[in-house]
C-alpha cells in the first residue's frame, strides 16, 4: 500500500484560550513516507502532531486514519508511536520494561506471551544497536541512547504511524547528526509511516521524503525537499528555508528588472509591477559596475564552513551577504557591484 494515503488531516482548526494555533489546515500523509513538519516556533506544528496522536483535540475538522475517522478516537486506541523531545522514558523501569510497556499494557487476550515479548524486545534492541542494555535504567544512558530507547518503545506496539516531536532537539550537534542518519536508515528498513516535527531546515531537507512547511497555523507548502527548495510557493517558505536577500524589483512581460537592469529571473505570468526579488547568497556574483544590479561597499568578509562570505552594505542601509567562490579577499570599504544570477520573485 506504499504511496496510498495513510492519514488525512481535514480542515483542522484549533484555538488555545484566545490564540488560534491552527487555521483550517488540511494535509495528506502517504503510507510509508517520512514526512517533516517544518516551521518556526508558534507555527502550530507540534499541536498538529499532538492532534494526530490524540493528545490534543481539534475545535473543528477531522483526522482520518486510512478509511477510519479517528477524530474522536481516544489516544490509547489510535495505535500511534509517539517520541517526545525529552524522551519521556519511565525512570523506574529498566530499558527492557520500557520497550515492553505498550505490549504489557494490552488486555490479557491481546497480550503476546512473555517469551514473545522478550523476543520482540530483543529484536528492537538489535535494531537500535543497544543489545546488552536491556537491564540498564534510563539514568545510566546518554541522551542519544535514551532517544533510541524511546523510539524502540514506540515501535514495539507496531504503530500505524510513528510521530516524532523534535526528536533531536535536546541533543548536541554531533549526536544529532548521527541520529538523523540512523533514523533515516531505520525508516528505510522498516518502511514505517513517519511524521516528525522540526524547526531545523537542514534536518527536514536532509531526512524527509516530503516536507510540509507550516507558518502561523497554516500549511504554506508541501512537497519533496527539491520541490520546496527549487519552487517555493511563497516568500515565507523561501525565507524559512535559508538565508536570502530581498531586493525591490519591477516585473513586466515575464521579465524582472532591478535598478532598470534586466535580470535572468523569470516572473510568473500575470505578475506585473513592483515586486520583491529574493536570492540566496550564492545566487549573487561580484560584477563590474555597468553589469551590476546592486551596489554597495564591503563591510567585512569571513570564512564560514569553507566558503567565503562577504557582507556588503547597500546605500539604503541594508546589509546583504554574498557567498563568493572566487576567494580574493576584499578589503573593507571597497565599493563593489553585485549581479543577480538567479532567484525568485513574489508580489511585494
Amino acid at each position: 500500500m506504499k504511496g496510498s494515503t495513510a492519514i488525512r488531516v481535514e480542515n483542522l482548526s484549533k484555538t488555545f484560550d484566545t490564540a488560534a494555533v491552527l487555521h483550517d489546515l488540511s494535509l495528506d500523509v502517504r503510507a510509508g513516507e517520512l514526512l517533516a513538519l517544518l516551521g518556526p516556533s508558534g507555527s502550530g506544528k507540534t499541536t498538529l502532531l499532538r492532534i494526530i496522536a490524540g493528545l490534543d483535540f481539534p475545535d473543528r475538522g477531522r483526522i482520518v486514519f486510512g478509511a477510519e475517522d479517528a477524530t474522536r478516537l481516544p489516544v490509547q486506541q489510535r495505535a500511534v508511536g509517539f517520541v517526545f523531545q525529552h524522551y519521556a522514558l519511565f525512570k523506574h523501569m529498566s530499558v527492557a520494561d520500557n520497550i515492553a510497556y505498550g505490549l504489557n499494557a494490552r488486555k490479557r487476550a491481546d497480550r503476546p506471551s512473555k517469551v514473545e515479548i522478550k523476543r520482540r524486545v530483543g529484536d528492537l534492541l538489535d535494531l537500535i544497536k543497544l543489545s546488552g542494555f536491556a537491564d540498564r535504567y534510563p539514568s545510566q544512558l546518554s541522551g542519544g541512547q535514551r532517544q533510541r530507547i524511546a523510539l524502540a518503545r514506540a515501535l514495539a506496539v507496531e504503530p500505524r504511524v510513528l510521530l516524532l516531536d523534535e526528536p533531536f532537539g535536546a541533543l548536541d550537534a554531533q549526536v544529532r547528526k548521527d541520529l538523523r542518519r540512523w533514523l533515516r536508515e531505520i525508516h528505510d528498513r522498516t518502511g514505517q509511516t513517519t511524521i516528525f516535527v522540526t524547526h531545523d531546515q537542514d534536518e527536514a531537507l536532509e531526512l524527509s521524503d516530503r516536507v510540509a512547511v507550516l507558518s502561523r497555523g497554516r500549511l504554506e507548502q508541501i512537497g519533496t525537499p527539491d520541490e520546496v527548495q527549487e519552487a517555493p510557493v511563497s516568500a515565507t517558505v523561501l525565507k524559512f528555508l535559508g538565508d536570502t536577500i530581498e531586493v525591490e524589483a519591477i516585473a513586466q512581460g515575464g521579465q524582472v528588472r532591478v535598478d532598470g537592469r534586466l535580470t535572468p529571473v523569470a516572473a510568473p505570468p500575470g505578475l506585473v509591477g513592483p515586486v520583491k526579488l529574493y536570492a540566496r547568497p550564492w545566487q549573487l556574483q561580484f560584477a563590474e559596475s555597468h553589469e551590476a544590479h546592486l551596489h554597495g561597499t564591503v563591510r567585512s568578509s569571513y570564512r564560514s564552513q569553507g566558503r567565503q562570505r562577504i557582507e556588503v552594505d547597500r546605500p539604503e542601509g541594508k546589509t546583504v551577504v554574498v557567498e563568493a567562490s572566487d576567494t580574493a579577499r576584499l578589503p573593507a570599504g571597497r565599493p563593489v557591484g553585485l549581479r543577480i544570477l538567479a532567484g525568485h520573485v513574489f508580489a511585494g
Binding site: 490524540g54 490509547q76 519521556a88 505498550g102 518503545r153
Partner: peptide
C-alpha cells in the same frame, strides 16, 4: 511529574 511521561504511557495504549 513530567506530563509527557503520562502522555507516553497513553500513546502506548495504556488506560
Amino acid at each position: 511529574i513530567d506530563k509527557e511521561i503520562e502522555e507516553a504511557s497513553a500513546t502506548l495504549g495504556a488506560g
